[in-house]
């Protein structure tokens, strides 16, 4: 297994913990609203060819909270500054769910920050149809269950989240939920100006979505496509909000094809 390291960086005026692994051209990964779940099969595959850079979101346990960050747009600004300071821009990105929201805000502010963007079931734009699942008035267990179409057919899901929740896991989830609420409570996990500011973005963008996603509806993908007409759409059948877990082979195939093109 490829070894990953955790580095504490001082960047963009704050402390940022970054998970680093692999070798090759840098690839930024923005985790979802529940936090970095740990090393996964698809990470292992990609890390053979790319250097994965996974910032651990401020206030998610390891990177300290940044008080002035009060919205996903603020957080996007912080990450953009960090990338520029580290001279990593432009960089390819794979961003999940609320991480997709962050990446989209970064794109909207500066389309040149990314060379290619993969947005996996991104939040951030109010869907024209359907609603982004409200993850705050539910327990963590209900939330986790809602992220996959069938937990029993996803061994990696069981490995990551199965069994008794430890006090450390519980605390990490509560940290994640608290911070997601703090910066995404209202408007709920979207920014009304985002689609307008994304208009005309030419950055190659892939919108990836699973047909059994109960968290982010298809309407979000349609809304993104409307804002970024050049974006490609990839659909993976019968998987939920975590295609990288439920069908990692197909996920890797689609993502690799897009990044290699």
């Amino acid at each position: 297994m490829i070894k990953s390291t955790e580095e504490k960086l001082n960047v963009a005026g704050a402390e940022l913990v970054m998970v680093k692994a692999g070798s090759g051209k840098p690839l930024l990964i923005l985790h979802d609203e529940l936090g970095y779940p740990g090393w996964m099969a698809w990470n292992e595959t990609l890390a053979h060819e790319r250097t994965l850079l996974i910032p651990l979101q401020p206030a998610y346990g390891k990177t300290p909270k940044i008080d002035w960050v009060r919205s996903y747009r603020d957080l996007a600004g912080f990450y953009s500054q960090a990338l520029r300071e580290m001279k990593l821009d432009p960089i390819d990105v794979i961003a999940f769910s609320a991480g997709g929201f962050i990446a989209a805000e970064m794109l909207a502010a500066d389309p040149r920050i990314f060379s290619k963007a993969v947005l996996v079931a991104p939040m951030g734009i109010k869907p024209e149809q359907g609603e982004i699942y409200d993850i705050f008035p539910i327990t963590i267990r209900t939330h986790l269950r809602a992220t996959v179409a069938d937990p029993f057919k996803a061994p990696e899901f069981t490995k990551l989240y199965g069994g008794e929740m430890t006090p450390e896991q519980f605390e990490a989830f509560e940290d994640a939920r608290a911070e997601a609420a703090r910066i995404g409570w209202e408007p709920y996990m979207h920014n009304p100006s985002l689609p307008h500011l994304l208009r005309g973005t030419k950055t190659p963008t892939l919108l990836l979505w699973g047909t059994a996603d109960h968290v982010v509806p298809r309407g979000c993908i349609d809304a993104y496509k409307k804002a970024i007409p050049d974006a490609q759409i990839a659909i993976i059948n019968d998987v939920g909000h975590r295609p990288e877990i439920e069908n990692s082979a197909e996920f890797e195939r689609v993502v690799n094809k897009f990044l290699a093109a």
């Binding site: 705050f136 008035p137 539910i138 327990t139 209900t142 006090p167 450390e168 519980f170 605390e171 509560e174 940290d175 939920r177 608290a178 911070e179 997601a180 609420a181 703090r182």
Partner: peptide, 23 residues
Amino acid sequence: RVEHTLPPGYNSKEAIQKLAKQP
């Protein structure tokens, strides 16, 4: 109900740690 009683971020870190350790 439980999911409405302690919304995310409502309680201090200290309180959550206490809760986490007292299953």
